[in-house]
């Protein structure tokens, strides 16, 4: 292949799916810029203080980091054609389990291992019910949402469990080069997720199973096993998030990570993950997380209630889905017209 041929080849590749993703990500960046502008306009006195601005950026990122880790797992589940409503409950259960007196006696390592193992285990149970028990993902994970929070309340006796581990508690307060360690953790998880989705057979199977499960099955892919693993991955991410959140609060309780499922699903959808499966990007989901965190922050610095915040968030989710559907229909119609 000559150099020009390579160049045109690259250009064409960019003109396809990639440009679609790039366009969407640029739009999301635009939305983010608009949100920041709204913040600057509504609270000019805050934004005139550069220290405050930097701290605010950090607080947005810190807020985004826990949800972000959950969203990476959620993105895989949705691309694979499913949904996981139990992520918030898994975070709570993993956090509570990791902070019991018995677990804490094993030290930070034991706590981290417990959180991750509990997350993975619960996720695999979800997957088992959905892939082999043939339960609808919505129902299976809804039931898990209730059950896992129930178990968390049972274990903790509805008490807040203080983390005594200096190592765990230090994670959230540690900064490297002025940036919180939690943000680095998100970056590593997201990078690993990107590689997993785009460069491994696991990622390819995810796209295939979500894009056309029957085609994947007839091509010899074990779609049941893969579906189970996807929910396991989501649970694993929840286990990591549980440690991060426990570290932030230096404690865990059954009510923690409330409505994280909503934020994670919303972030994935805003980021362009197709709810019907088969398409989605980690970068898009990350932008979705940051946009959502910025909105939360916007409400906080303007002293607005969480109730108002929740109403707006609900509206945004509906708007994102509507935009997705509209665009999908429009594209389908356009293709039909071109063909004729």
């Amino acid at each position: 292949m000559t150099a020009t041929a390579v160049k045109s080849d690259v250009r064409r590749r960019w003109a396809g799916e990639n440009s679609e993703n790039t366009t969407r990500n640029l739009v999301l960046l635009g939305v983010l810029a608009a949100l920041i502008a709204i913040g600057a306009i509504t609270r000019p006195q805050l934004y005139s203080d550069s220290t405050w601005v930097w701290n605010n950026v950090l607080s947005i990122l810190q807020l985004a980091s826990v949800i972000g880790v959950v969203t990476v797992g959620m993105t895989f589940v949705i691309i694979g054609g499913g949904i996981d409503l139990s992520v918030g409950a898994i975070v709570a259960l993993a956090g509570v389990w990791a902070t019991t007196v018995a677990t804490q006696s094993f030290g930070a390592g034991g706590m981290i291992f417990t959180a991750v193992a509990v997350g993975l285990g619960v996720g695999l149970v979800n997957g088992l019910l959905i892939a082999y028990g043939k339960l609808v993902p919505f129902i299976a994970t809804l039931a898990m949402l209730v059950a896992a929070r129930g178990l968390a309340a049972q274990i903790s006796g509805k008490q807040t469990q203080i983390s005594e581990s200096a190592v765990i508690n230090g994670i959230a307060s540690t900064k490297i080069l002025g940036i919180p360690l939690l943000v680095y953790i998100l970056a590593v998880v997201a990078a690993a997720g990107w590689v997993l989705l785009n460069r491994t057979t696991f990622g390819r199977r995810t796209v295939a199973v979500g894009g056309n499960a029957e085609a994947a099955r007839l091509a010899g892919i074990d779609i049941k096993r893969h579906t189970m693993l996807l929910y396991g991955l989501s649970g694993l991410c929840c286990g990591l998030a549980a440690i991060m959140l426990t570290s932030q609060a230096t404690s865990a309780q059954a009510a923690m990570a409330n409505l994280y499922e909503l934020d994670a699903i919303a972030a994935a959808i805003i980021g362009g993950t197709l709810l019907s499966g088969g398409r989605g990007t980690i970068v898009g989901s990350l932008l979705g997380v940051i946009i959502f965190a910025t909105i939360t922050n916007l409400f906080a610095i303007n002293g607005l209630s969480t109730e108002a915040q929740n109403m707006v968030k609900g509206g945004i989710i509906i708007a994102a889905v509507l935009v997705q559907q509209f665009r999908f229909d429009a594209v389908t119609r356009l293709l039909g017209r071109i063909r004729n």
Binding site: G16, E17, R204, V207, A208, G211, N212, E214, A215, A216, L218, A219, I221, G278, R279
Partner: peptide, 16 residues
């Protein structure tokens, strides 16, 4: 409905 990932490129369908 049974064999193709319509939104994916040819090569990924061939190597499915």
């Amino acid at each position: 409905s049974q064999a193709l990932l319509l939104g994916e490129p040819i090569y990924r369908n061939v190597t499915l």
